[in-house]
């Protein structure tokens, strides 16, 4: 009896953490439904009373919101699909073949995950400039089509497939591509989906690289557009800013809600052996 009561006390720090982690989100949501007066007079009140849609109307009517949305979607989907292909192909080579310098190549790919991003930006910017890709979605997309962690996670997943299954396919004279397509892909679909969602959320949220490449407002992605709503003095259009923030994080949140179990399980693997 005494022990079970003591155990319950450990829920307190966890609940406190949830409060701290959710508070900013609650504020974003409630502020986005408040008008200017409510924002400044009742900023601690998490309930917008009465809720108003005026901020959302302003965003949809006065800003090219759907242009931002389209730009973000195009870039995020393109990156996700190609990253998935490059990761699956590379992981397959590491699992299916035995070749010279395998470990060295694998490690040098995984290591790129730890290369600090700022170290890459100037040389990559100069390259995009030479190729004439500045201020285009391609300039944003091109340097992001491969992912060290993606290859690592994909390889971990493929390693879980029993070798006998692959050997059986080979005995039936299946080509490597057929083995990949008919045997491996159907088996790794849940993890591959989770990894793709993680690619998509990452690309969707990207701020810094698009900021350097894209100059015209018509090219902006949603995270970039957010910058337009904060002025040097700290801004005054908080309701509108929060409405854009809210719309920006909605797609990742929805994806997370529908696939959280897969995502969490995949992420939990990421640190165990690396």
């Amino acid at each position: 009896m005494k022990i079970s009561k003591l155990k319950n006390l450990w829920h307190l720090p966890l609940l406190l953490a949830i409060l701290v982690q959710f508070w900013p989100l609650v504020f974003m949501i409630s502020t986005s439904f408040k008008d200017m007066n409510q924002i400044f007079q009742a900023s601690l009140n998490p309930l917008p009373l009465p809720p108003t849609l005026v901020n959302y109307e302003t965003v949809l009517n006065n800003f090219p919101f759907f242009t931002f949305l389209n730009n973000t979607l195009f870039i995020a989907i393109f990156i996700t699909v190609i990253k998935l292909v490059t990761s699956v192909l590379a992981a397959f080579a590491f699992v299916y073949y035995d070749f010279k310098y395998k470990e060295v190549i694998f490690n040098s790919m995984l290591l790129t995950f730890f290369i600090p991003f700022t170290v890459l930006i100037m040389p990559n910017y100069l390259l995009m400039s030479k190729l004439g890709l500045l201020n285009t979605p391609w300039g944003v997309i091109l340097p992001q089509l491969v992912d060290g962690m993606g290859i690592f996670l994909m390889r971990q997943t493929m390693r879980g497939i029993p070798k006998a299954l692959l050997e059986a396919a080979v005995l039936e004279n299946a080509s490597p591509l057929q083995v990949l397509y008919k045997v491996i892909l159907p088996l790794i679909r849940p993890s591959a989906t989770a990894i793709s969602i993680f690619f998509f959320i990452d690309a969707w949220n990207e701020y810094f690289w698009p900021l350097l490449v894209l100059q015209d407002k018509g090219m902006y992605t949603l995270p970039l557009a957010l910058q337009m709503f904060i002025s040097a003095e700290g801004g005054s259009e908080w309701g509108i800013a929060m409405a854009v923030a809210m719309l920006t994080c909605l797609p990742p949140l929805i994806l997370y809600f529908v696939s959280q179990r897969f995502i969490l399980n995949t992420f939990m693997q990421s640190g165990v052996k690396g």
Partner: peptide
């Protein structure tokens, strides 16, 4: 507790 990790840093910065 994982949920905030899915949110863009640009959004977090504004909040």
């Amino acid at each position: 507790l994982f949920l905030p990790s899915t949110i863009s840093l640009a959004v977090a910065s504004i909040i």
